[in-house]
Design a protein around this nucleic acid. Structure first.
Lengths: 254, 254
DNA sequence: CGCTGTTTTGAACGAAGTCAAGGTTCGTGG
DNA sequence: CCACGAACCTTGACTTCGTTCAAAACAGCG
């Protein structure tokens, strides 16, 4: 179901996840230009599809509130989750070269998505180098995220990485530092990480017993971030916040 | 070691991997503009570094001939391979938002890389919408590739997927349809796929016995692509060749 | 020609998957 | 508002797959 963005009083300037979305680092004119091209929001109830794989792709979507997953069906017809999307995330970048969606998108909870027409976005990137730069950065962060859930030998590490990744991404979007909740089910986590759901449960229970996380009904709260970091791989602290460049070498290469 | 690109008689127009690189789908003026901004090639012998993680990033690199891997070091100091790069591949897109390289890059064999200055590229994207479109497509394909080596439950499938992925990518670059060779060692494959190298070897040996592939010294030849496809997950046939849109629905979503 | 890194194979162990079954939570409809 | 069914979560026992350890064969390179 579509809503008019204006009538909902949504403007990139006041958006809670502005610093993650397209409107970051833009001057007022650029922000207005972007905002004016995003005229619709799409509202989806929990479990509803936003689009299907092989659909013609005319838009990107930005998660305004809520969360989503995208997936495809393998030869057996079983679901294979590709990614989860949280507020501020841009959906659909990987499908641009094909002009059609590679994955189907489903809302994990009641969700509002800003509809970003691709042709309009490309025009804006062409006009404003700040917008070009910003979209390229978003693409880069997306690649970093896709690469961050890499295959590791053991299951504890993979789940720790998953929780950390989602933790970092959620933390950028809210101010609660202590407790963060994950919107997806254990079944979905196991699907995404490619392991048995019983295993996910056992590892989460173990983490719970060791007071690293606290499991409430359908929500997971992180209580000991340091232990979690020890368990996971490093490199993961990929976010869009401040970039600390430790030291800049004189020359790119000898 | 750097070489002057002009003196090497390299021009995007005549490049063997032009259809995979930035210069695809451009008109002559645009191709010239791109070509003029790429003035250097970097030559690296097997095993040599091209750049290191945390180096300042000023350039992207395009593989002209040869192949590379990029990696990072985990807390134990052991190597974690992030990706392999074949002729036509663009290296460094994911690091753009950070202005420094996230990974270190090593040549797998004697390799020539076209040096693409990022600021120049951004200027060209700003000027020519075709170049903008092309770079966004490359970014999209890169995401598809990052997503294609997803975690699957069993090892046979993961290796089949890996071989298929590399097969498709290599096939786009050469005209030999029957036999294709992989430039990386089994040790590197195991590292990349997150499994023991003995396991990689055993699975490859099994595939060899079943006449799906033929293993020669440090080279793997694919002999039965159909069997391999059955073993792997689908969706993988991601390439930059013709895009077959099976059917275009009337509306993007109901 | 010897050293080093890579591939190969076997045997034993352990981690994670599978199967089965019971307990919870949530949504829907009566 | 309660009852019921459908997902989802939890736990145990068993099995299997893949890792680990060890050791040998091989290739590549200085």
């Amino acid at each position: 179901m579509f809503k008019n963005r204006n009538s909902q009083n949504i403007h990139c300037n006041h958006c809670a996840v502005k610093t993650l979305c397209v409107a970051r680092d833009l001057n007022p004119i650029e922000t207005d230009d972007i905002n004016n091209q995003i005229t619709k929001i799409k509202v989806a109830d929990k479990g509803n599809h936003i689009f299907h794989a092989k659909d013609l792709q005319q838009n990107l979507y930005a998660v305004h509130t809520g969360s989503c997953k995208d997936y495809w069906l393998d030869e057996d017809g079983s679901e294979r989750i590709n990614n989860f999307y949280l507020p501020g995330d841009i959906i659909g970048l990987e499908s641009i070269p094909n002009d059609k969606h590679l994955y189907s998108l489903i809302a994990l909870e009641n969700t509002e998505l800003c509809v970003i027409p691709i042709t309009a976005l490309f025009d804006l990137m062409h006009q404003h180098s700040n917008i070009l730069k910003r979209v390229m950065n978003i693409a880069g962060y997306k690649m970093q995220n896709d690469q961050s859930i890499r295959i590791t030998t053991n299951v504890n590490q993979r789940i720790a990485d998953f929780i950390l990744n989602t933790y970092y991404r959620l933390q950028e979007r809210s101010n609660s530092k202590d407790f963060i909740s994950l919107p997806m089910s254990q079944l979905e986590i196991s699907n995404y990480l490619g392991m048995a759901h019983e295993t996910v449960n056992r590892v989460l229970r173990k983490f719970h017993k060791e007071k690293i996380i606290t499991i409430k009904v359908k929500r997971i709260y992180i209580t000991d971030i340091d232990r979690l970091k020890e368990l996971g791989t490093t490199l993961l602290s990929i976010g869009q916040g401040e970039t600390h460049v430790e030291k800049i070498p004189e020359e790119e290469c000898q």
